[in-house]
Amino acid sequence: MWKFTVRRLLIMIPQIILLSIIIFVLAKMMPGDALSGLIDPNIDPERIEELRHMHGFYDPWHKQYADWVGGLMQGDLGKSFRFKMDVTELIGQRVVNSFWLSLATLIFTYLLAIPLGILSGRYNDSLLDQTITTYTYIGFATPLFIFALVMLWVFGFMVGWFPTSGSVTPGLEPGTFEYVLSKINHLILPSLSMALIATVNTVQYLRNDIVDTKQKDFILTARAKGAPESRVYNRHILRNSLLPIAAFFGFEITSLIGGSIFIENIFGYPGMGQLFLESILLRDFSVVTAVTLLFGIAAIVGALLSDIILSLVDPRIRIK
Protein backbone atom coordinates (compact mmCIF):
# COMPACT_ATOMS: atom_id res chain seq x y z
CA MET A 1 0.00 0.00 0.00
CA TRP A 2 2.67 2.54 0.98
CA LYS A 3 4.62 1.56 -2.10
CA PHE A 4 1.66 2.30 -4.25
CA THR A 5 1.09 5.67 -2.59
CA VAL A 6 4.73 6.68 -2.80
CA ARG A 7 4.87 5.70 -6.45
CA ARG A 8 1.70 7.59 -7.11
CA LEU A 9 3.10 10.66 -5.35
CA LEU A 10 6.32 10.48 -7.34
CA ILE A 11 4.37 10.41 -10.58
CA MET A 12 2.84 13.73 -9.56
CA ILE A 13 6.20 15.51 -9.64
CA PRO A 14 6.78 15.32 -13.39
CA GLN A 15 3.08 15.99 -13.90
CA ILE A 16 3.29 19.25 -11.98
CA ILE A 17 6.56 20.29 -13.61
CA LEU A 18 5.07 19.68 -17.04
CA LEU A 19 1.98 21.62 -16.06
CA SER A 20 4.07 24.59 -14.91
CA ILE A 21 6.08 24.60 -18.14
CA ILE A 22 2.95 24.50 -20.29
CA ILE A 23 1.38 27.33 -18.32
CA PHE A 24 4.56 29.36 -18.46
CA VAL A 25 4.93 28.90 -22.22
CA LEU A 26 1.30 29.74 -22.85
CA ALA A 27 1.57 32.84 -20.69
CA LYS A 28 4.61 34.00 -22.64
CA MET A 29 2.85 33.37 -25.94
CA MET A 30 -0.06 35.62 -25.03
CA PRO A 31 0.07 38.90 -26.90
CA GLY A 32 1.12 41.94 -24.93
CA ASP A 33 2.36 42.04 -21.41
CA ALA A 34 1.49 43.70 -18.15
CA LEU A 35 3.09 46.95 -19.25
CA SER A 36 1.44 47.23 -22.65
CA GLY A 37 -2.16 48.10 -21.86
CA LEU A 38 -2.56 49.30 -18.37
CA ILE A 39 0.11 51.90 -18.13
CA ASP A 40 -0.64 55.52 -18.77
CA PRO A 41 -0.10 56.00 -22.49
CA ASN A 42 1.55 59.33 -21.77
CA ILE A 43 4.59 57.71 -20.27
CA ASP A 44 7.64 57.81 -22.41
CA PRO A 45 7.99 54.48 -24.37
CA GLU A 46 11.66 54.47 -23.48
CA ARG A 47 10.75 54.45 -19.83
CA ILE A 48 8.48 51.46 -20.46
CA GLU A 49 11.30 49.62 -22.20
CA GLU A 50 13.45 50.41 -19.21
CA LEU A 51 10.81 48.98 -16.93
CA ARG A 52 10.60 45.90 -19.08
CA HIS A 53 14.33 45.37 -18.70
CA MET A 54 14.08 45.99 -15.03
CA HIS A 55 11.38 43.41 -14.59
CA GLY A 56 13.40 40.85 -16.50
CA PHE A 57 11.09 40.64 -19.52
CA TYR A 58 14.09 40.28 -21.85
CA ASP A 59 15.88 37.62 -19.87
CA PRO A 60 16.29 34.25 -21.59
CA TRP A 61 13.19 32.04 -21.10
CA HIS A 62 14.86 29.58 -18.80
CA LYS A 63 15.93 32.33 -16.47
CA GLN A 64 12.43 33.76 -16.47
CA TYR A 65 11.02 30.30 -15.80
CA ALA A 66 13.50 29.72 -13.00
CA ASP A 67 12.61 33.07 -11.45
CA TRP A 68 8.93 32.25 -11.70
CA VAL A 69 9.30 28.81 -10.20
CA GLY A 70 11.62 30.15 -7.52
CA GLY A 71 8.95 32.63 -6.59
CA LEU A 72 6.30 29.94 -6.55
CA MET A 73 8.34 27.89 -4.15
CA GLN A 74 8.36 30.78 -1.71
CA GLY A 75 4.65 31.32 -2.13
CA ASP A 76 5.20 34.32 -4.34
CA LEU A 77 2.79 34.13 -7.21
CA GLY A 78 3.61 37.57 -8.49
CA LYS A 79 1.74 40.80 -8.23
CA SER A 80 -1.65 41.61 -9.66
CA PHE A 81 -1.40 44.67 -11.88
CA ARG A 82 -5.10 45.20 -11.58
CA PHE A 83 -5.62 44.97 -7.85
CA LYS A 84 -2.16 46.22 -7.00
CA MET A 85 -1.65 43.52 -4.44
CA ASP A 86 0.20 40.23 -4.13
CA VAL A 87 -1.49 37.45 -6.07
CA THR A 88 -0.97 35.16 -3.11
CA GLU A 89 -2.98 37.44 -0.91
CA LEU A 90 -5.61 38.02 -3.57
CA ILE A 91 -6.08 34.34 -4.19
CA GLY A 92 -5.98 33.53 -0.51
CA GLN A 93 -9.43 35.01 0.12
CA ARG A 94 -10.89 33.46 -2.98
CA VAL A 95 -9.51 29.98 -2.44
CA VAL A 96 -11.41 29.64 0.81
CA ASN A 97 -14.65 30.68 -0.84
CA SER A 98 -14.12 28.34 -3.76
CA PHE A 99 -13.25 25.52 -1.41
CA TRP A 100 -16.55 25.84 0.43
CA LEU A 101 -18.47 26.09 -2.80
CA SER A 102 -16.78 22.96 -4.16
CA LEU A 103 -17.33 21.06 -0.97
CA ALA A 104 -21.02 21.98 -0.89
CA THR A 105 -21.36 21.00 -4.54
CA LEU A 106 -19.69 17.64 -3.95
CA ILE A 107 -21.92 16.95 -0.98
CA PHE A 108 -25.04 17.78 -2.98
CA THR A 109 -23.78 15.78 -5.96
CA TYR A 110 -23.38 12.60 -3.96
CA LEU A 111 -26.46 13.19 -1.82
CA LEU A 112 -28.41 13.18 -5.06
CA ALA A 113 -26.45 10.61 -7.02
CA ILE A 114 -26.26 7.77 -4.57
CA PRO A 115 -29.95 7.36 -3.72
CA LEU A 116 -31.07 8.09 -7.27
CA GLY A 117 -28.52 5.72 -8.78
CA ILE A 118 -29.39 2.98 -6.33
CA LEU A 119 -33.13 3.28 -6.88
CA SER A 120 -32.72 3.45 -10.60
CA GLY A 121 -30.38 0.48 -10.72
CA ARG A 122 -32.24 -1.69 -8.27
CA TYR A 123 -35.62 -1.23 -9.90
CA ASN A 124 -34.30 -0.99 -13.43
CA ASP A 125 -36.85 -0.66 -16.20
CA SER A 126 -39.55 0.33 -13.72
CA LEU A 127 -41.42 3.62 -13.98
CA LEU A 128 -39.21 5.05 -11.23
CA ASP A 129 -36.09 4.10 -13.16
CA GLN A 130 -37.46 5.64 -16.32
CA THR A 131 -38.23 8.87 -14.50
CA ILE A 132 -34.74 9.08 -13.05
CA THR A 133 -33.18 8.20 -16.38
CA THR A 134 -35.21 10.91 -18.07
CA TYR A 135 -33.89 13.39 -15.54
CA THR A 136 -30.33 12.34 -16.28
CA TYR A 137 -30.89 12.77 -20.01
CA ILE A 138 -32.25 16.26 -19.43
CA GLY A 139 -29.25 16.93 -17.22
CA PHE A 140 -26.87 15.78 -19.92
CA ALA A 141 -28.53 17.99 -22.47
CA THR A 142 -28.85 21.17 -20.42
CA PRO A 143 -25.92 23.59 -20.50
CA LEU A 144 -24.87 24.49 -17.00
CA PHE A 145 -24.84 28.25 -17.49
CA ILE A 146 -28.40 28.33 -18.80
CA PHE A 147 -29.64 26.12 -16.01
CA ALA A 148 -27.83 28.27 -13.46
CA LEU A 149 -29.40 31.44 -14.86
CA VAL A 150 -32.85 29.86 -14.64
CA MET A 151 -32.22 28.79 -11.06
CA LEU A 152 -31.01 32.26 -10.18
CA TRP A 153 -34.02 33.87 -11.79
CA VAL A 154 -36.56 31.53 -10.17
CA PHE A 155 -35.18 31.06 -6.67
CA GLY A 156 -33.16 34.23 -6.37
CA PHE A 157 -35.36 36.84 -7.97
CA MET A 158 -38.90 35.49 -8.38
CA VAL A 159 -39.32 33.52 -5.19
CA GLY A 160 -36.54 35.32 -3.42
CA TRP A 161 -35.52 32.41 -1.19
CA PHE A 162 -31.82 32.88 -1.69
CA PRO A 163 -29.43 35.81 -2.07
CA THR A 164 -28.50 36.59 -5.66
CA SER A 165 -24.83 37.46 -5.27
CA GLY A 166 -21.87 37.56 -2.94
CA SER A 167 -20.63 35.03 -0.47
CA VAL A 168 -21.91 36.61 2.71
CA THR A 169 -24.19 39.47 3.71
CA PRO A 170 -22.00 42.55 4.21
CA GLY A 171 -21.59 43.97 7.68
CA LEU A 172 -21.70 40.72 9.62
CA GLU A 173 -18.99 40.02 12.12
CA PRO A 174 -16.88 37.01 11.01
CA GLY A 175 -17.16 34.13 13.46
CA THR A 176 -20.65 34.88 14.64
CA PHE A 177 -23.44 32.43 14.14
CA GLU A 178 -25.27 34.78 11.78
CA TYR A 179 -22.13 35.08 9.68
CA VAL A 180 -21.84 31.31 9.25
CA LEU A 181 -25.54 31.04 8.49
CA SER A 182 -25.30 33.74 5.88
CA LYS A 183 -22.31 32.02 4.33
CA ILE A 184 -24.26 28.80 4.04
CA ASN A 185 -27.26 30.62 2.68
CA HIS A 186 -25.12 32.11 -0.07
CA LEU A 187 -23.70 28.71 -0.92
CA ILE A 188 -26.89 26.73 -1.36
CA LEU A 189 -28.20 28.04 -4.64
CA PRO A 190 -24.96 28.00 -6.65
CA SER A 191 -23.81 24.64 -5.33
CA LEU A 192 -27.20 23.05 -5.79
CA SER A 193 -27.45 24.37 -9.34
CA MET A 194 -24.08 22.91 -10.19
CA ALA A 195 -24.78 19.63 -8.37
CA LEU A 196 -28.10 19.06 -10.13
CA ILE A 197 -26.31 19.06 -13.46
CA ALA A 198 -23.04 17.47 -12.40
CA THR A 199 -24.74 14.59 -10.62
CA VAL A 200 -26.32 13.03 -13.69
CA ASN A 201 -23.03 11.46 -14.72
CA THR A 202 -22.68 9.73 -11.42
CA VAL A 203 -26.35 8.69 -11.32
CA GLN A 204 -26.05 7.03 -14.71
CA TYR A 205 -22.76 5.46 -13.82
CA LEU A 206 -24.04 4.05 -10.57
CA ARG A 207 -27.25 2.82 -12.15
CA ASN A 208 -25.46 0.99 -14.93
CA ASP A 209 -22.99 -0.51 -12.56
CA ILE A 210 -25.71 -1.81 -10.29
CA VAL A 211 -27.58 -3.31 -13.23
CA ASP A 212 -24.29 -4.92 -14.25
CA THR A 213 -23.39 -6.22 -10.83
CA LYS A 214 -26.88 -7.69 -10.40
CA GLN A 215 -26.08 -10.13 -13.20
CA LYS A 216 -22.80 -11.27 -11.70
CA ASP A 217 -22.36 -14.83 -10.63
CA PHE A 218 -21.43 -13.99 -7.07
CA ILE A 219 -24.88 -12.48 -6.62
CA LEU A 220 -26.28 -15.91 -7.41
CA THR A 221 -23.94 -17.35 -4.82
CA ALA A 222 -25.29 -14.87 -2.29
CA ARG A 223 -28.89 -15.70 -3.17
CA ALA A 224 -28.15 -19.42 -3.01
CA LYS A 225 -26.84 -18.87 0.52
CA GLY A 226 -30.31 -17.69 1.42
CA ALA A 227 -29.40 -14.03 1.75
CA PRO A 228 -32.52 -11.85 1.70
CA GLU A 229 -32.80 -9.26 -1.03
CA SER A 230 -31.86 -6.35 1.25
CA ARG A 231 -28.67 -8.07 2.26
CA VAL A 232 -27.85 -9.00 -1.32
CA TYR A 233 -28.05 -5.32 -2.18
CA ASN A 234 -26.32 -3.83 0.81
CA ARG A 235 -23.57 -6.36 1.20
CA HIS A 236 -22.86 -7.55 -2.28
CA ILE A 237 -24.12 -5.20 -4.93
CA LEU A 238 -23.62 -1.77 -3.43
CA ARG A 239 -20.08 -2.15 -2.32
CA ASN A 240 -19.03 -3.38 -5.70
CA SER A 241 -20.93 -0.68 -7.52
CA LEU A 242 -19.73 2.21 -5.40
CA LEU A 243 -16.17 1.31 -6.29
CA PRO A 244 -16.12 2.94 -9.72
CA ILE A 245 -17.88 5.94 -8.21
CA ALA A 246 -14.92 6.38 -5.91
CA ALA A 247 -12.68 6.21 -8.92
CA PHE A 248 -14.79 8.89 -10.52
CA PHE A 249 -14.22 11.26 -7.64
CA GLY A 250 -11.11 12.78 -9.14
CA PHE A 251 -12.78 13.58 -12.43
CA GLU A 252 -15.61 15.08 -10.46
CA ILE A 253 -13.15 17.61 -9.04
CA THR A 254 -11.86 18.46 -12.48
CA SER A 255 -15.33 19.08 -13.83
CA LEU A 256 -16.09 21.08 -10.72
CA ILE A 257 -13.34 23.52 -11.67
CA GLY A 258 -14.83 24.04 -15.10
CA GLY A 259 -18.29 24.43 -13.63
CA SER A 260 -17.23 26.88 -10.97
CA ILE A 261 -16.06 29.37 -13.58
CA PHE A 262 -19.62 29.68 -14.89
CA ILE A 263 -21.34 29.38 -11.56
CA GLU A 264 -19.25 31.92 -9.69
CA ASN A 265 -19.72 34.47 -12.43
CA ILE A 266 -23.45 33.94 -12.71
CA PHE A 267 -24.03 34.03 -8.97
CA GLY A 268 -21.50 36.79 -8.39
CA TYR A 269 -19.70 34.56 -5.97
CA PRO A 270 -16.21 35.82 -5.16
CA GLY A 271 -14.16 32.70 -5.75
CA MET A 272 -11.34 31.56 -7.98
CA GLY A 273 -13.58 31.04 -10.98
CA GLN A 274 -14.83 34.56 -10.94
CA LEU A 275 -11.33 35.89 -10.41
CA PHE A 276 -10.11 33.80 -13.30
CA LEU A 277 -12.58 35.20 -15.78
CA GLU A 278 -12.14 38.78 -14.59
CA SER A 279 -8.38 38.49 -14.83
CA ILE A 280 -8.55 37.15 -18.34
CA LEU A 281 -10.77 40.01 -19.43
CA LEU A 282 -8.40 42.51 -17.80
CA ARG A 283 -5.25 40.78 -18.99
CA ASP A 284 -4.07 40.43 -15.44
CA PHE A 285 -1.68 37.70 -16.54
CA SER A 286 0.08 36.97 -13.30
CA VAL A 287 -3.28 36.20 -11.74
CA VAL A 288 -4.37 34.10 -14.70
CA THR A 289 -1.24 31.98 -14.65
CA ALA A 290 -1.41 31.56 -10.90
CA VAL A 291 -5.05 30.51 -10.97
CA THR A 292 -4.50 28.15 -13.89
CA LEU A 293 -1.63 26.58 -12.05
CA LEU A 294 -3.76 26.08 -8.96
CA PHE A 295 -6.60 24.62 -11.01
CA GLY A 296 -4.16 22.24 -12.65
CA ILE A 297 -2.72 21.16 -9.35
CA ALA A 298 -6.23 20.64 -7.99
CA ALA A 299 -7.01 18.35 -10.91
CA ILE A 300 -3.81 16.37 -10.39
CA VAL A 301 -4.52 16.04 -6.68
CA GLY A 302 -8.06 14.95 -7.53
CA ALA A 303 -6.73 12.12 -9.67
CA LEU A 304 -4.36 11.20 -6.86
CA LEU A 305 -7.21 11.08 -4.36
CA SER A 306 -9.19 8.86 -6.71
CA ASP A 307 -6.38 6.39 -7.00
CA ILE A 308 -5.73 6.32 -3.29
CA ILE A 309 -9.41 5.88 -2.45
CA LEU A 310 -9.68 3.13 -5.01
CA SER A 311 -6.64 1.34 -3.68
CA LEU A 312 -8.10 1.55 -0.18
CA VAL A 313 -11.42 0.01 -1.10
CA ASP A 314 -10.38 -2.43 -3.82
CA PRO A 315 -8.26 -5.28 -2.48
CA ARG A 316 -7.20 -6.23 -5.99
CA ILE A 317 -5.27 -2.98 -6.32
CA ARG A 318 -4.15 -2.85 -2.73
CA ILE A 319 -2.00 -5.93 -3.12
CA LYS A 320 0.05 -4.75 -6.07
Binding site: K216, D217, L220, T221, A224, R235, H236, L243, P315
Partner: peptide
Protein backbone atom coordinates in the same frame (compact mmCIF):
# COMPACT_ATOMS: atom_id res chain seq x y z
CA UNK B 1 -30.19 -26.85 -0.17
CA UNK B 2 -26.74 -25.76 -1.31
CA UNK B 3 -25.46 -24.96 -4.76
CA UNK B 4 -22.06 -25.15 -6.41
CA UNK B 5 -21.58 -23.00 -9.49
CA UNK B 6 -19.68 -23.49 -12.68
CA UNK B 7 -17.12 -20.75 -12.71
CA UNK B 8 -15.19 -20.31 -9.48
CA UNK B 9 -13.54 -17.19 -10.85
CA UNK B 10 -16.81 -15.25 -10.85
CA UNK B 11 -18.81 -17.05 -8.17
CA UNK B 12 -17.13 -15.24 -5.29
CA UNK B 13 -17.51 -11.61 -4.30
CA UNK B 14 -14.19 -9.98 -5.23
CA UNK B 15 -14.35 -7.47 -2.38
CA UNK B 16 -15.06 -9.81 0.50
Amino acid sequence: MGMIFQDPLTALNPLM
